[in-house]
Amino acid sequence: MDFSFSIIVEAWPTFEAGLITTVIFCSVAGVLGLALAVPIALAQLSRSWSWRVPAKVLVEIVRDTPFLVQVFVIYFVFPATGWPMSSTVAGILALTIHGAVYFSESIRGAILSVPRGQVDAARAAGMSYPLTLRRIVFPQMMGYVLPPIGNQIVGLIKDSAVLSIISVPELSMAFQNVLGTTFAAPEAFVAVAVLYWLLTSAVTLAMSRLERLTPTHRSTQEMTSLLARVDR
């Protein structure tokens, strides 16, 4: 089997455009998702059920349905109820909500991993709950939260491939176009796999760099087993 780089070179502009779109979508959804994840996590830990229940319901719905179906629901249901929806908005919205729910689980697990005694000591000293969170809990949970969040950002990038189904012109759409123009050349398979792999590996690398900066550095394996004890 002869591998012809010229096919890839010709197809590169298509791939490049798709890659840029993927990066943009994932970055926007990632940032918005992380922002959304914090209130969702805190709501699940709240004492009043008027916060807890809606949060748990949202988390459960997003976790128990396929991402593709979530995309379809957002893309088709909103226009029907009056809100116009483009594939770009639908795509980012779906990625954001999906990401937010999974991020919130990591954040919740990390908060619960901070030893209870730390919070007790702060409250005993007269610190309010919000102050305790800000000064005691969040700084300590950073080391616990980065490994799973890193995994989930990678998951976000992989999920974004699904958006091609509602015609978002990202990398997997580019791949499908190239499949068409090159009659399913194997070079296309390799190219798209390599591109996604580079993207996800870059994120993983960046995350481990970040992890080393945190005070309570935990390996991904330790975190996985810690999180496994979080009650879902």
């Binding site: 992989k158 974004s160 491939a161 194997p186 996604y196 996800t200 590996s201």
Partner: peptide, 22 residues
């Protein structure tokens, strides 16, 4: 393992579907 976990399942499905006939 690195490839499978570093690339989207959607892409893997398409690759298997199109590569096997090839």
């Amino acid at each position: 393992m690195s490839i499978v976990r570093g690339t989207p399942l959607f892409i893997q499905i398409l690759i298997v579907y199109y590569a096997l006939p090839a």
